[in-house]
């Protein structure tokens, strides 16, 4: 569906995107992850034809953005980082204009606008000037603009930036719903967002792709052992001694006291080894009851920091 090959973009001498390639299958939701300035927006601007690449190709449905820009642009809906809205127009006027420039049939315009604005609950503000709307509504107007003409591909550049938590949840829910019908590339520097919405992740750092895989595979890859935090009623030295004696346990470390007369301990085991039953019996025998067992998952944040070479602050 979307094929990016050896894409490079130079701004003067500055290399913004460095020879990146990736593919997106029809119907998938791909998260494009990177820090600010990593090259996410530049890549998206190239795919949508806003700017041209210095070298490399971007193809959508087999059409090259440079050779057949019209065909490519017809099947893309783009929400840039800053929604391209005109402050002085009303929502209705603006959407009519977008319909006109995106070749929506004149007879279908009203019903189409109603249909897509229903998706983001924009109906109650249709007659208001865009400049007078809140940031959240302006973002939604930008979103609806991308949906005009029902494009197969949606490219959303940081769609939740600047929104309040409730709006963020709404927009994410909407993207998930849209993902059932559309192929979506979504950029973000917010990790839980990508973890929540996307099946596949492309991580970009300083213009280069450092990883691309499904989220599950990425977690698997980085996770060499299973970690859990256990809270035990008793002293640290006695508890760690008991835990170290269990078979399958690789590493034990006291994490300090979080609750009176208890101790928190990090227990690391080999992947696929379940020590919980043995641990329960052993600690019960020693009269040091286990009050809590919590698995510590590898988060996208861990993956991201590991791949981009940044240190994690504890």
């Amino acid at each position: 569906m979307i094929e990016i090959e050896n894409l490079t973009k130079l701004y003067g001498n500055k290399l913004a995107v460095d020879n990146i390639s990736f593919k997106v299958k029809k119907g998938s939701v791909v998260g494009f992850l990177g820090r600010n300035g990593a090259g996410k927006s530049t890549t998206m601007n190239i795919i949508t034809g806003y700017i041209s690449a210095t070298s490399g190709t971007a193809r959508i449905n087999g059409y090259d953005i440079l050779k057949n820009p019209r065909e490519v642009k017809k099947c893309i809906g783009y929400l840039p980082e800053r929604p391209p809205i005109y402050q002085e127009m009303t929502v209705q006027e603006y959407l009519k204009f977008v319909c006109a420039i995106k070749d929506v049939k004149a007879s279908a315009v009203s019903s189409h606008i109603e249909e897509i604005s229903n998706l983001v609950k924009l109906n109650e503000v249709m007659g208001r000037r865009i400049g007078n709307l809140s940031k959240g509504y302006q973002q939604r107007v930008g979103m609806v603009q991308a949906l005009v003409g029902n494009p197969e591909v949606l490219i959303l550049d940081e769609p939740t930036v600047g929104l309040d938590p409730k709006q963020i949840i709404e927009i994410r829910r909407m993207i998930k719903a849209l993902g059932k019908k559309h192929t979506i590339i979504l950029s973000s520097h917010i990790l839980p967002e990508v973890a929540d919405v996307c099946e596949q992740v492309v991580i970009i750092n300083q213009g280069k792709i450092v990883a691309q895989d499904t989220l599950a595979n990425l977690q698997e890859g980085i996770q060499e052992s299973a970690n859990m935090v256990v809270r035990i009623a008793g002293s640290e030295s006695a508890a760690t001694k008991q835990l170290r004696a269990l078979s399958g346990v690789k590493f034990v470390e006291g994490l300090g006291v979080r609750e009176k007369d208890t101790v928190d301990i990090l227990v690391e085991t080999d992947k696929g080894v379940d020590v919980r039953r043995a641990m329960f019996n052993a600690m019960a025998k020693a009269n040091m009851p286990i009050l809590m067992i919590k698995y510590v998952d590898v988060t996208l944040e861990d993956i991201f920091l590991k791949l981009t070479g940044a240190e994690r602050e504890i």
Binding site: Y50, R70, Y78, R82
Partner: peptide
């Protein structure tokens, strides 16, 4: 205002 992104990424 970067509104040129609207028409430069449209089929126009």
């Amino acid at each position: 205002n970067k509104t040129d992104q609207l028409y430069l990424t449209s089929p126009l």
